[in-house]
Design a protein around this nucleic acid. Structure first.
Length: 170
DNA sequence: GCCAACGTTGGC
DNA sequence: GCCAACGTTGGC
C-alpha cells in the first residue's frame, strides 16, 4: 500500500497505490483518455472519502477498474494529479449528488483529479481471484464494495504483470 | 433478475 | 444507543 522511496533531494516520499471502480457504461477508461483528466466526483461513502481527502497524493498510481460489466476487469492505470478537495457537485442543488449539509466552505465530500497513464490489456476479476500473488487484495475480499481502495505496491505490480506491463516502466 | 453484503436512516 | 427497514453495490 505504501512504499518508501527517496526523491532526488534525499527526502523520503511515500508512494501509494489505489484501485478505483467505475461502471463501464458510466465512465469508461476510454473516456478518461478522451478527456485527458477528470475529477472523481460523486463518491458518497465515508471510507472512500477519507482516502481521497487524507491519503491520496499527487503522483499516486491507480488501477482503473470497470465494474458492472462482463467480465469485470482492470482496464488501465491512472495517476492522481490533484489531491483531495471539496466535491462541488455536493453543493450544486441541480446535481444528483447534492447534499444540503455540504458547502464550499465546509465540504462534506471530497474528490481528487486523475489522468490516464496507460491502457491495459483487460485483467479480468476471475484471473485476479485465481492468482495466489494477489491474495488479500481488498477488491477480492468478500463483500468489498468500496469504490476507492488501497492496493499494495506488490499487488499493483502483479496486476500490471498480468497485463504484460512492468510497473517499473511507467 | 437474484441476492449477499453493507451503509444509512430514523423511530424508539 | 439499538435495531429494523430500506437503499445501493456489484458479482453471478
Amino acid at each position: 500500500m505504501s512504499v518508501e522511496s527517496i526523491d532526488p533531494f534525499g527526502l523520503p516520499l511515500t508512494m501509494n497505490h489505489w484501485l478505483m471502480k467505475s461502471e463501464l457504461d458510466v465512465y469508461p477508461y476510454s473516456q478518461l483518455v478522451a478527456d485527458g483528466w477528470t475529477h472523481w466526483d460523486g463518491v458518497r461513502n465515508y471510507q472512500a472519502r477519507n482516502m481521497m481527502r487524507d491519503a491520496m497524493k499527487v503522483g499516486d498510481l491507480v488501477l482503473f477498474y470497470h465494474s458492472n460489466t462482463k467480465p469485470p476487469h482492470v482496464a488501465g492505470v491512472a495517476r492522481v494529479t490533484r489531491e483531495g478537495y471539496g466535491d462541488f457537485t455536493s453543493w450544486d442543488a441541480s446535481s444528483k449528488y447534492f447534499d444540503e449539509k455540504s458547502t464550499a466552505d465546509n465540504p462534506r465530500w471530497f474528490m481528487v483529479d486523475i489522468e490516464p497513464v496507460c491502457e491495459l490489456t483487460m485483467v479480468p476479476l476471475q484471473d485476479m481471484k485465481d492468482n495466489p500473488n494477489l491474495e488479500g487484495m481488498p477488491l477480492l475480499q468478500r463483500g468489498q464494495r468500496l469504490s476507492v481502495q488501497p492496493v499494495t505496491e506488490e499487488q499493483f505490480a502483479e496486476v500490471l504483470r498480468m497485463a504484460g506491463v512492468d510497473a517499473a516502466d511507467l
